[in-house]
């Protein structure tokens, strides 16, 4: 293990940044926190949740796929792929770190999405243990340990130091390049870990029960009357899907200018009324079906296809951001009550 004094964090960031692009969570002027490239003025945001998740680093909201030059002679493909350089993503919390595994199972499955794969391969992920898990956090329900988050490097922070534990070859390579890191006091990192464990035991959502959801539960849950009630006030705004680290739906659109066409993809949301709209009809005509799709996908369909793994990491972002205070915890609990 390594460590560095907190008052030398800027030196650490400067050293990483000299090697490759470094993204850290920062508070923006509008109050939101986001992962942004480090600069000398940047200050590490030490709150837990960035407004948008860390998935943006691998699956950006908008991304060029390919261009076309269209003329009388025909069509010519144009390479519009952004060049991907190695980068370090610092300060990822346990929940977002797990979301990468969840996205990997989609984007890295055959046929591999090379846009996503290139960014994943280029990244060194440095995670940070959550000193004060919040009342909206329920990652532990999904077997995530925020006191020791997975990553190429795992870090802990106390009042004095940042403790640095490389876990993978990528993490060790980064560590070796950072000569300013000192020998770490493992016992102190361990203390941070234990303190977090103690907080976790007191969290209000720690006993969230998931036995009634999961793989194989389509028949049991699909026609439940609770969906109508739960979705009644849903605005279909899609905020929950945009902040969610595991939501992966995208649209493919084109932008035309002169003789060239840029084809890009952008995030989409199953909560939108036009998501499945066809000239031939609309398989999900009301918000109830669309709302049900989002939660059934996270709690049943994804687990069906991915060895029981849920497509929610309990980050709590949707608890904070939904304008009508609907969220996945309420959905899980309502379905539970109906079962009993």
């Amino acid at each position: 293990m390594k460590q560095i004094a907190l008052n030398r964090l800027d030196e650490l960031f400067a050293a990483i940044s000299a090697r490759q692009t470094l993204l850290i969570p920062q508070q923006l002027e509008n109050g939101d926190a986001e992962f942004r490239p480090w600069s000398a003025e940047a200050k590490l945001y030490t709150g837990l949740k960035t407004s948008r998740s860390a998935k943006d680093a691998f699956f950006p909201q908008v991304e060029n796929l390919v261009g076309f030059k269209v003329s009388e002679q025909g069509i010519e493909l144009m390479d519009t792929r952004d060049e991907v350089q190695p980068f370090t993503l610092f300060g990822v919390r346990g929940c977002d770190a797990r979301s990468f595994d969840i996205l990997d199972r989609v984007f890295l499955a055959e046929p591999v999405d090379t846009f996503y794969a290139d960014r994943r391969a280029a990244a060194t992920v440095v995670t940070l243990a959550c000193n004060r898990p919040e009342t909206t956090c329920f990652c532990q329900s999904f077997g995530i340990d925020p006191s020791r988050p997975a990553g190429d490097v795992t870090c802990w922070m106390d009042a004095e130091n940042l403790y640095w534990q490389p876990n993978t070859d990528k993490g060790r390579a980064l560590t070796e390049a950072l000569s300013l890191l000192e020998e770490g006091e493992e016992a102190r990192a361990k203390r941070v870990e234990e303190d977090i464990q103690a907080v976790l035991k007191r969290l209000p959502l720690k006993d969230l029960s998931l036995d009634h959801v999961g793989a194989g539960k389509t028949k049991a849950l699909f026609d439940r009357p609770e969906w109508a009630e739960l979705s009644e006030a849903c605005l279909g705004c899609g905020a929950c899907t945009f902040v969610c680290p595991t939501c992966q739906c995208y649209d493919i659109e084109e932008f035309k200018s002169g003789g060239s066409v840029r084809r890009f993809r952008c995030w989409d949301s199953c909560m939108y009324s036009d998501f499945t709209l066809m000239s031939a009809g609309q398989p999900r005509p009301t918000q109830t079906e669309r709302f049900r799709q989002r939660f059934m996908h996270k709690l049943v369909y994804y687990p069906d296809n991915q060895d029981g793994l849920f497509s929610c990491v309990g980050c709590g972002r949707c608890l904070v951001k939904c304008p009508i205070h609907m969220n996945i915890v309420k959905v899980i609990n309502a379905l539970k009550e109906g079962t009993a």
Binding site: V106, F107, A109, P111, D113, T218, F222, Q248, C249, Y250, D251, I252, R265, D268, C270, F275, T276, L277, M278, A280, P283, Q293, M296, H297, V300, Y301, D304, N305
Partner: peptide
């Protein structure tokens, strides 16, 4: 079956029904 498709690769989520 005919549904709206975008990626055709099982990734964009558009044509998902059940599992």
């Amino acid at each position: 079956l005919e549904l709206r498709m975008k990626c055709a690769l099982g990734k964009c989520g558009r044509c998902n029904i059940g599992s």
